[in-house]
């Protein structure tokens, strides 16, 4: 047993890969059997990750979730700023600029609104809960855009870990509501043609939320929604820690 824990702590990054991999298997199984594919496995995995961080924090009394446990210190490296930025930048490789033209002006408008509107709403909610500094407001507002934009923005402008955790949780929660809620409101919001699917993708953003929600509504609409949604994270990572942050800084004066 002692030897085993020695192996785990001596190879922390590999331990982290194994641990996260097992977590993703479990999440995939939960998604398939308990939610009948309604909620995407990735959203469940992130929620489980946050839950483990909660219990890790209680068990160790530390501030870095499960990364405070010696055997799981590698999770800190795996989910740290370096590999996170690296992997997120890599997703841009799948963006096809030629396809983007198909979405046209209406897709661009939807993308713009889909970034700014949730951001403003998130900022107001954060204000209502007593946050007043521009860094925390921007991070929580960015979390309301997507669960990627939130932590990328928070890390870039130097937000505290609790605020980053709030912004991830907000983004994941948003993705889950989009996955579950879309089929119920599809008729009401006119989600029955490729154009509205592209508008939907641009406004909602989270690729997992959009593809999950559209798949449950009408499988044929998925590629149209995913087309605009893929630009959402890039746009958010570009404007949230820059234009939006500066605007808030100018308003709050801090």
């Amino acid at each position: 047993m002692n030897m085993m824990s020695h192996v785990l702590t001596a190879n922390t990054l590999l331990t982290a890969f194994a641990a996260v991999g097992i977590l993703m298997w479990i999440s995939g199984a939960i998604s398939k059997y308990l939610t009948l594919g309604r909620i995407h496995g990735s959203a469940i995995a992130i929620m489980l990750g946050l839950a483990l961080a909660f219990f890790g924090g209680i068990a160790t009394g530390g501030e870095k979730g499960v990364a405070d446990l010696p055997a799981l210190a590698g999770v800190g490296l795996m989910g740290g700023a370096m590999l996170r930025d690296f992997a997120i930048v890599a997703t841009a490789f799948e963006v096809d600029v030629v396809h983007a033209r198909k979405a046209g002006l209406i897709g661009a408008v939807a993308l713009g609104l889909g970034t700014v509107v949730p951001f403003i709403l998130g900022v107001f909610v954060a204000l209502a809960f007593g946050y007043t500094d521009a860094v925390s407001l921007t991070t929580i507002g960015a979390g309301a855009v997507t669960y990627i934009v939130g932590p990328v923005t928070g890390a870039a402008i130097g937000a505290s870990s609790p605020v980053i955790a709030l912004s991830i949780a907000t983004g994941v929660f948003k993705a889950v509501i989009v996955m579950i809620g879309t089929p119920f409101v599809a008729k009401m919001i006119g989600l029955n043609n490729p154009r509205s699917a592209m508008v939907f993708g641009g406004l909602m953003g989270t690729v997992s939320g959009v593809s999950g929600g559209l798949a449950a509504t009408d499988r044929r609409l998925v590629p149209y929604g995913a087309l605009t949604a893929t630009f959402h994270t890039g746009l958010g990572c570009l404007v949230a820690p820059s234009v939006l942050y500066f605007t808030l800084r100018a308003i709050t004066g801090s």
């Binding site: 982290a16 996260v20 990735s42 990750g49 924090g57 501030e63 979730g65 949780a169």
Partner: peptide
């Protein structure tokens, strides 16, 4: 490869936040 790795990395990122305080 790295692009397909981003969800696991986001999971690892979520698992090391100060959720107790959040």
């Amino acid at each position: 490869f790295w692009g397909s790795f981003y969800i696991p990395i986001v999971v690892a990122m979520a698992a090391q936040q100060n959720v107790v305080a959040a």
